[in-house]
Design a binder for these strands. Structure first.
Lengths: 145, 145
DNA sequence: TCTTGAACCTATAGTGACTGTAGATATTAG
DNA sequence: CTAATATCTACAGTCACTATAGGTTCAAGA
């Protein structure tokens, strides 16, 4: 494969993302604008390939686009100390740890609810009862399942 | 406390959510429109209190607004069989379980990365290397930390 | 070479669940 | 009464995409 003269479609397919996503990254300044053909079509080279790969990989690890932006700036300067990189990664890690804890707690609650449901009518439905139970408000945490 | 003549601010404070959120729920049809004062201010009663409580509690358990809409319709008819409620709850539970698994896997990856970082320069930063490493693409899953 | 379908383009709006703000009106406390 | 607070509608923003409309360019096949 030639790492030059790459169309946006090719780039997207190889990176496992959508053409729109690439355009989005360009719009928000994460990916530099590439040169164009006379027909106004984007032409990418290996620099873009590497950068998009970095972005996608970081996204897969759950880093926010802002964090990725920061990491990209850092990675462009090999002489920088990597303590900021370390900080960004560790911060993200602790967010993930926290989120797991919240979801685990949530899972327990849901399991309890589901287990208590014996079938039958709504009028006697334990799930609905729990949801309607005002005293249960504020006993839970997270909601981005 | 009187469960009538409740202002939106009172309702929001008691439900632990924002005034805007209540207006939003009204807009999307989840909360019925309440009567108004001559000064065009909303006036809620205990029916709204109960309904909002149901919604907030369900949200805290991570149910989507659409799922909550469905549950509300069901809860309004006590003679309905609760198998749909059961299905909605179980479906959500398995989503949570799945999400925990994905995040746990992600956590391991991040831990590995962070552990490999010895400090120093970006040029030798293991975290940056891993993110830039094309062969790691597609080995991960979730990103809503 | 010609034709047609696929790929590309920009612009704009939508997704889900909120959240914030501007500018105006109503209410309440001192 | 006055000033501060609460309420109102309208509209846009958040985050990370995602889809679509209408138009242009490119490439494959006959």
């Amino acid at each position: 494969m030639t790492l030059r003269d790459i169309s946006i479609g090719r780039l997207a397919r190889d990176a496992g993302c959508k053409v729109q996503t690439i355009r989005y990254y360009e719009q928000i300044g994460l990916l530099p604008e590439p040169p164009r053909t006379a027909g106004n079509q984007r032409v990418y080279d290996k620099v873009h390939v590497k950068r998009l790969s970095f972005i996608r990989h970081s996204r897969e690890l759950g880093f926010s686009l802002d964090a990725i932006r920061e990491l990209l700036v850092l990675s462009d300067d090999p002489d920088q100390p990597c303590e900021t990189v370390d900080r960004v990664a560790k911060s993200h890690l602790s967010e993930v740890v926290e989120k797991i804890a919240r979801l685990t707690s949530l899972k327990s609650e849901l399991e309890r609810m589901v287990k208590q449901c014996k079938g039958g009518r709504i009028g006697a439905c334990r799930i609905i009862e729990v949801l309607a139970d005002h005293s249960h408000a504020h006993c839970l945490t997270d909601h981005s399942a």
